[in-house]
Computed example of a mutant assay.
Amino acid sequence: MATIEVDEDTKRTLSFAARMARLTEGQIVRRLIETGPWAEERAPSPPGVEGVAIYADYEGHRVRARYLEPGRVHIVDGPLAGQTFKTPTAAARAVIRHFNPAVNDNRNGWTFWQIDEAGVRKPLQSIRPGAQRPGRGSLRGRLVLSDDWDSDEVNEGIARDFGLAP
């Protein structure tokens, strides 16, 4: 086994991190290497896997994956590497179950997974098919209201329709 020399403070910090995560010191070092800024270069997409590069940060771990239309997620590194899921939510739940099995794994995968666009972190939701809307709500720009839409007569008519009128 190879050894690495570190100063006493680093050794104490590494030992503490290993105890807290219930891992060996070597596993802590491996995770640091796998999640460092250089790791993107080390984790290319598998042959035949294109798509959009995505990632998730959970419980101190970064998991890299590829988003494949129309909604599949292929994990490219970490303990779940090589697994493909039918939906972003299924992939998110698998990550959570792996790193923290004691918690409820119910998550929205479209917001769990992130995209890095020129240094700006965005949720996967931002490229979800059909997610582009002209504004708040699905009827914005399509709903035509009359000038009296909020008049007393209209409000009383609505109240009558719902059985709320006196």
Rank of each mutant, 00 (worst) to 15 (best):
V52W: 02
G48D: 03
G51F: 00
I96D: 06
P46S: 15
A65E: 00
Y67S: 09
V49M: 09
E69W: 11
W38T: 13
V63E: 01
P46C: 13
R66H: 09
G82P: 00
A81Q: 06
V73I: 15
P46I: 05
A92Y: 02
P44M: 10
P79Y: 08
R62S: 06
T84F: 04
Y58G: 05
P44F: 07
A90K: 01
A39D: 02
E50M: 11
A92G: 09
A81I: 06
A91W: 00
G78R: 00
A92P: 03
E41M: 10
G78M: 02
R93S: 12
S45H: 09
G48P: 13
A65H: 00
A81P: 02
P70H: 10
E69N: 13
V49F: 05
G82M: 06
R62G: 04
W38I: 12
I96M: 14
H61T: 09
E59N: 13
H74P: 08
K86E: 11
T87D: 08
F85N: 03
A65M: 04
A43Y: 07
A94C: 09
G82F: 04
P47Y: 08
E69L: 14
S45M: 08
T89K: 02
T87L: 04
E40V: 09
A81R: 04
V52A: 06
A43T: 06
A53P: 15
Q83E: 14
G48W: 03
V52L: 12
R66K: 15
R72H: 13
D57R: 10
E59M: 13
W38Y: 11
R62L: 06
G51P: 03
E50L: 10
P44Q: 08
E59I: 07
V95Y: 04
V95T: 08
T87P: 00
R42H: 11
V95N: 02
Y67L: 11
A91D: 01
A81F: 01
V95E: 04
H61R: 12
G48K: 02
R72S: 14
A65F: 04
P37T: 10
A65R: 01
T89R: 02
E69T: 14
E69H: 12
D77K: 07
A56I: 05
E59H: 10
S45Y: 03
D77M: 08
R64V: 00
G78A: 07
A92H: 03
G78T: 02
L80D: 03
Q83T: 15
P44I: 06
A39N: 05
G48Q: 01
V52Y: 04
W38P: 03
A53S: 15
V95G: 00
A65N: 01
S45R: 11
E50V: 08
E50R: 13
G78H: 02
V95K: 00
S45A: 15
H61P: 01
R93Y: 07
L80N: 04
G51A: 09
E40A: 12
P47Q: 11
A65T: 03
D57S: 10
T87N: 06
K86Q: 10
G60I: 08
V52F: 05
T84W: 03
I75W: 00
R72M: 13
Y55N: 04
K86A: 12
A43K: 04
P47W: 07
R64G: 01
D57C: 08
K86W: 07
